[in-house]
Simulated assay, not measured.
Amino acid sequence: MERNPLIAVDTQPDSPSAIYGHPRASARLRPLIADVGKRSGEFPDYLANHLPMVLEAMGRLGAAPERLEAYARHYTLAHAVPFPPPAVSSLTDATWRSALGQRERETDLRDYFADVVSRIGGNEAIRLHLPALFPGVAASATHGLMRLAYAVLRRDEMEIGIALGYWAATYLAFPQPPLAGSPTVDDPAELILSMQSEPSFRNIVVSSTLLWKWIEAVGHIPAFQQRLGRLAPRDDLLIRMRQASLALYAGTMSFEALHAVTGSHWLRLVSPHLDKPQILAVHFWEVVLSLYTKIGMPDLPSAEMLDAWRKLQVPPDEAIAAAAIASDDEHDHSLVFSALEEYRHTGDPLYRVVAARRVGLIE
């Protein structure tokens, strides 16, 4: 298999992790997440509610129940996380797609998917219904995917229904212009770097700080639309995406590239429940393409630089996890947990390096 020479291959799958959940946290997590999960998937104004997911991440990183409860109170109050809007009208198998992208229908969509999960189970609900949501994976800046991934990780049927409803209510798809021929690009890194020469991707102005508003705006640029559908859904696509995302984040440590790294983890969790997970991966990478413009379309680090970073001395996993737990920034919890899980899966020490950098333990 030919690969991009800048990116390392997975060499040590399922390597051991030194991080274990707090012995008293697991019993508290499920009822705590069930309680905070009653609130909306977003808080004012249209920002993703990370709380159900980062509580799980913090618990698995070793947070004590007291820290989890304190953080849940802090997050809910600091962000004024509301309850979902009132129901409008019930949805059915024949009508639920008519409510896609309508935030005011969050309750209706949550209720619909709760019923679906109760009838056929979470795994089958994902397999049958998620393909219709693939094109809208930019939903709430990809956090619909995040919520579903954590629900799958926890084997939480209630959260699976909520996550599907949240994804559907915030559904955001790019225009899909007709393409001449089949997808021709195998390497996601190649596709992302091909954008550097396009002038219309420079100096984009978006009148909002919301990440999903940037994604939406880039989707209207003709040159961007020409790149949609270019990436081939190969069997090794998620591996290549994981490697390219890690290189991009290591080189930039940017907020946008962080979501590519965590998103690759979420895709790995959800993929076993799908018949064609590569199709979802293609749509996710198109979101990453749109965010690449926001960070100035930098080059990826060289193979030599990546290897040098891999050799850096970093604190033990327990210290990295403890620093994330102590933080009140939900993206610290998210990145560190995903990075350590991806390190456990791949054995690539660069994940430990970026995790330690994120929480300020190394430069």
Rank of each mutant, 00 (worst) to 15 (best):
I160F: 05
V152P: 00
R230V: 02
S40H: 07
I279N: 06
N49D: 15
L91Q: 15
D93E: 08
I239W: 13
R60M: 14
S338G: 04
T293M: 09
W96E: 12
H345G: 10
G263W: 01
Y150I: 01
R103D: 12
R127G: 08
P82K: 03
T262M: 06
L300N: 02
V116D: 15
S327N: 11
Y71M: 12
K38W: 09
S182G: 07
R30F: 09
Y249L: 14
G59M: 09
L280T: 05
L164M: 13
G296C: 09
V359D: 08
V270K: 00
A99S: 08
V206Y: 04
A169S: 10
A80C: 13
R344H: 04
M297Y: 08
R352N: 15
S245N: 10
R39C: 05
L211Q: 08
L29N: 01
L179Q: 10
I126F: 05
H345S: 11
E69W: 14
Y46T: 10
L47Q: 11
P183D: 01
L109E: 08
N203W: 04
R67L: 15
G41N: 08
I120M: 15
L312V: 10
L210P: 10
D156H: 11
K213E: 14
V287Q: 05
D299R: 06
S327R: 13
I239L: 13
H74I: 05
E42F: 15
Y351F: 15
S254R: 10
L248F: 15
P178S: 06
K38L: 08
R24L: 14
L179N: 04
H259L: 09
H143R: 00
S40K: 02
S264Y: 06
F174I: 00
L47I: 03
P233M: 09
H259V: 06
S245L: 12
S200K: 03
S302G: 12
V54Y: 01
R97G: 11
L145G: 01
T107S: 14
E286V: 03
M241H: 07
P13I: 06
G62H: 14
T170R: 00
P23E: 05
M297L: 09
S15Y: 03
V152I: 06
A141P: 00
T95Y: 12
Y71F: 12
A163D: 09
M253G: 13
F284H: 04
R119A: 06
T142D: 03
F174S: 02
A139D: 00
I295A: 11
R344S: 11
A247Q: 11
E2A: 08
R97E: 08
P85G: 13
G122K: 08
E56V: 03
L289S: 05
S271V: 11
P183R: 05
V282W: 01
Y75V: 10
L100A: 07
D275K: 10
L211K: 13
V282C: 05
L306F: 13
P5V: 02
R310S: 07
F83G: 11
D186R: 03
A356K: 01
D108E: 13
R358V: 02
G296R: 12
M253W: 14
P233C: 14
R344W: 02
D332P: 05
F83V: 05
I239V: 13
G121H: 15
L312E: 08
Q196I: 01
